[in-house]
Structures are given as C-alpha cells and as structure tokens.
Design a binder for these strands. Sequence first.
DNA 1: GATGAAACAATGACTGG
DNA 2: CCAGTCATTGTTTCATC
Lengths: 153, 153
Amino acid sequence: MTLDTIDIKLLDYLQQDSKQTNKELSNKLNLSVTAVYERIRKLERSGVIDKYVALINKQEVNKDFVAFCHIKLVQHAQEYVTKFEREVANLKEVAECYHISGDYDYLLKVVVSDMEDFREFMVNKLTSINHIGSTHSMFVINEVKHTTAINIS
Amino acid sequence: MTLDTIDIKLLDYLQQDSKQTNKELSNKLNLSVTAVYERIRKLERSGVIDKYVALINKQEVNKDFVAFCHIKLVQHAQEYVTKFEREVANLKEVAECYHISGDYDYLLKVVVSDMEDFREFMVNKLTSINHIGSTHSMFVINEVKHTTAINIS
DNA sequence: GATGAAACAATGACTGG
DNA sequence: CCAGTCATTGTTTCATC
C-alpha cells in the first residue's frame, strides 16, 4: 500500500492518540469526516494499522523496575533456538525479546516490581530455561524517551 | 489507587484491544455497561491509563530495520548529561532511550528503513551530538516477542 | 453496584455531485 | 475526493433504586 502525505499525518495523529474523533481529525487534516473515516478503514484493512491499545503507567501499577537482559545460548541448533524462543515468549515478565547480532544472541526487556521480583524471575524462570549459556543484566535508571510511535517519512 | 481483580482484568483487555465496546467488556467481566464505563473513567482520571494509541506494522511502512545502540558519554557532568538527553530525545529515529547501569550509559532503540538509513543516522545525527565517547550497535535479526502490555498481578 | 432514559457521536451503507 | 442522508449502534450523563 502506498501512503500519501495525508495518510502519514493521519498515522502520526493516531499513533499519538487514537481516541480522537473523526471530526477532530478532519479539522486537523482539512478533510471531510467521511474522507477521514475511509482513510482510516483503508489503513486498518491493509494492515498498516495493526491494532488499538491502552497504554498504562508502570508507576501506577507498581511495575516500574525495568531491566534489559542479554542472553547467550550454549548451542545454536534449530531445536534449542526454537525451544528457547517459545519458552521466553511465554514468560509474562518478558515484555520484549529480540534476536540480535553481536556478542550475545538475545536482548530481553523485563518488567517487574522491584529488585527482589527481578531476582526471583532470574532464578526461577529465566535461568531454568535450558541451553542458556550466560546472561548479562542492565537496569534502567531512567526512561529518557519511550514512544510506541514509529516515525514515517 | 488500589486495583481489584476486575480492574486488573479490565486493564488486561484494554491493553490488548482498546476498541472493544463497553458492551463487549461488560459481558467478559459480568458487569453492566455503566459499571464498565465508570471503572474505565476512574482508571483514566487516576492516571493508571495513560493514553490510547494506534500501533502500526513496521513492515507495512518500510521502517523495519531496528537497532539497539549502546552509548557511553565522555563526561558525566550534569550539564552534558542533560544536553545529551534532550538532543537524543529530539531525534525522530530514536524510539526509546534509557539511562542504564553497566558498562555503557545509555541504551537506544533506533527504528529506520535499512542499513543505509542507519548509517546516515549514526554519521549525521547521533555522533554529531557532543560528548559521546563510544557507541556499540546491535541489529535486530528477529523480533521474538514485542508487547506494549504490562503484566499486572 | 444496577437500571432506564435521553442527548450526543460514530458506524456503515447509501445517495448524488 | 466531497456533501448529505439515514438506521443502527455506542457513549456519556442523568436520576433512581
């Protein structure tokens, strides 16, 4: 699907706030309500817009201890890789998991309540997955920037 | 604010899909539509729910080259730290920036189109910020798991 | 908490320009 | 693309139990 400049602006707005009415958007974009409605539906149906979600404040729900965890596997046979990825994806504390280039194989973003919670996660959940060679954890001191929006240009 | 088990379920649902109608949610939670409406409003006003956003498919907008970038500053005087954080937050390619513990000072998530785009970002934008000592980039080979939802329990 | 009523807004399909 | 229609559905605020 090709996006024109209006689509890009529309996506920017919706990535910031999806609860705006079509009327508000039509004013910002100088379009009719129907045109906005049809553009949004096209973006939804084509798969450009994946879904709409609520974002919550980690602090308010006492889940503001965030760590990034590097992981190296002992072996890289397809069987072990698949098993590790499946098991790690099932851990609720793991918000994100990336297979990355470099010294380590994976980078995990772990969201828990506090250091004690993190310790328990490491000991009882993460390291109980087989074939993990080594891990290296970094703790988030401060979230300087965090956006779910993707810059399209 | 204290959350009961119904609030937690409600937040789980809204973090997965915020476009559900209150009627659908009232069925899932065995509540009346008005009760659901009032709980949501309470969660919004108390700041537990931060905002509602559209999530878009990186692939569909040709922004699926993702890198994590470690950064070490030369100096750590408050002045340089503040300046670095302000400048890096203004870079549109930087989706996330964390001040972290460990060998490096910062971890950035950079979202661009391709390697050429990334090279340009590094040369013209990131490393033109003063006081950066060293950087170390890791490229995302595969996104094993990525959720914006926070597990509350 | 529930319920019903009422005002308002959005959806989805449809005209015709 | 726009403007306007219309029935249906959902949202939001009431008052009442």
